[in-house]
């Protein structure tokens, strides 16, 4: 054929063909996504501190293992209340003259998704310990440690933020381990990662491929099928209180033998799970976030967690009933 003997014609045709498809599949959709989009009305732009933190997130290449997108499939429900939509990323613009926009959707989930980490894990103390060495709070973790975000001081002063690193992770460091401003910026960014509520009236996108409703959920109040308290504990509580329930000395209190956990009246424990707790901050322990409310735990789920806590690690207390917990939750108000 003729065109295969003329290099100018052949390569021009190939280029035009490729360019046309590129416009169709990349440039036009990208331009439209950029132009016809606006951030949600109640979304908050990042503060200066949080922006600096995002820069550290980018610098350390966290995107290699952490996504920031909740897909519209059922299995992603654990990462957010609703699927991510284009408007969630609309506020992102070019970082600076050297660097591109940082949407940070990611393509690998070696570690958990971070879209909603600010709700799931709001505690500053936990984040700092976790950044200093992830294995100090989560034994199975393979996340890198970031000790260069911390410094060692012989005598830390009042304004320094000390990190209560357990002995086996101090690697012989004697002085106080203190968070640098960079560490605080990164934590501020992580705390800022929260899904914005859709404005009233806007249709909420659904999660696809739903699991068939199981009997356990339908008739939960009858207690016919008991929820797996151990798994729920692992998802919601374990990162601080640890699998063995002993917490971490000086950071997160132990649940083993705890009077609050073992109390015959589950009211205080329910309140702490739903509302958070600051009663032991003066002892050096971290502030407990309102895990139950943040993670939308239902009464039967709270009951399952409490029964796991009350009957593990040598703890022995009577089993609580979901109906009983529901009453308490209704009473204290969500």
């Amino acid at each position: 054929m003729e065109i295969y003997n003329h290099h100018k014609r052949l390569f021009t045709i190939a280029l035009v063909f490729f360019l046309a498809l590129t416009f169709f599949a990349a440039i036009i959709p990208a331009y439209q996504a950029q132009e016809n989009n606006a951030p949600l009305p109640n979304s908050k732009p990042l503060t200066e501190q949080e922006t600096l933190g995002k820069a550290i997130f980018v610098k350390e290449g966290c995107i290699a293992c952490h996504t920031q997108q909740v897909r519209n499939v059922d299995m992603d429900k654990v990462w957010g209340d609703r699927p991510s939509i284009a408007a969630d990323y609309a506020g992102n613009t070019r970082t600076d003259i050297w660097r591109n926009t940082a949407n940070l959707l990611g393509s690998e989930r070696t570690g958990p998704d971070l879209t909603n980490i600010g709700i799931r894990q709001p505690g500053k103390d936990w984040h700092l310990l976790h950044l200093y060495n992830p294995r100090s709070v989560s034994t199975g973790s393979i996340m890198p440690a970031y000790p260069w975000l911390f410094e060692v001081k012989e005598n830390s002063n009042k304004n320094d933020i000390k990190v209560m690193v357990p002995n086996e992770f101090r690697q012989g460091i004697v002085g106080d381990i203190v968070a640098t401003p960079e560490a605080m910026q990164l934590v501020a960014y992580l705390q800022s990662l929260k899904q914005t509520k859709l404005p009233d009236g806007k249709p909420v996108p659904i999660f696809l491929y739903p699991k068939p409703e199981s009997k356990a959920l339908a008739g939960s109040n009858n207690g016919s099928v008991e929820l797996d308290g151990k798994s729920l504990y692992a998802v919601n509580c374990q990162s601080c209180h640890q699998e063995n329930g002993e917490g971490l000395k000086g950071a997160f209190p132990s649940l083993k033998g705890s009077q609050i956990v073992l109390n015959d009246d589950p009211k205080t424990l329910t309140t702490i799970i739903m509302k958070g707790y600051n009663g032991r901050v003066s002892e050096g322990y971290g502030l407990m976030p309102a895990v139950g409310s943040n993670n939308n735990l239902k009464p039967d789920e709270v009951a399952a967690i409490m029964n796991h806590e009350r009957n593990s690690w040598g703890n022995k207390a009577r089993k609580v009933d979901p109906a009983e917990i529901k009453k308490i939750i209704d009473l204290i108000g969500k």
Binding site: F11, A14, L15, F18, L19, T22, A26, I27, P29, A30, Y31, A33, Q34, N37, A86, Y89, A90, G91, N92, T93, R94, N100, T101, A102, N103, L105
Partner: peptide, 25 residues
């Protein structure tokens, strides 16, 4: 070689990279 020049331009030119445009590119 021709296509890769185009691809690199689409990836690095900043005119369609804000918001979700970055992800599509």
């Amino acid at each position: 070689a021709i296509f890769t020049v185009v691809i690199t331009l689409v990836a690095y030119l900043p005119f369609w990279q804000n918001g979700l445009g970055e992800t599509i590119a």
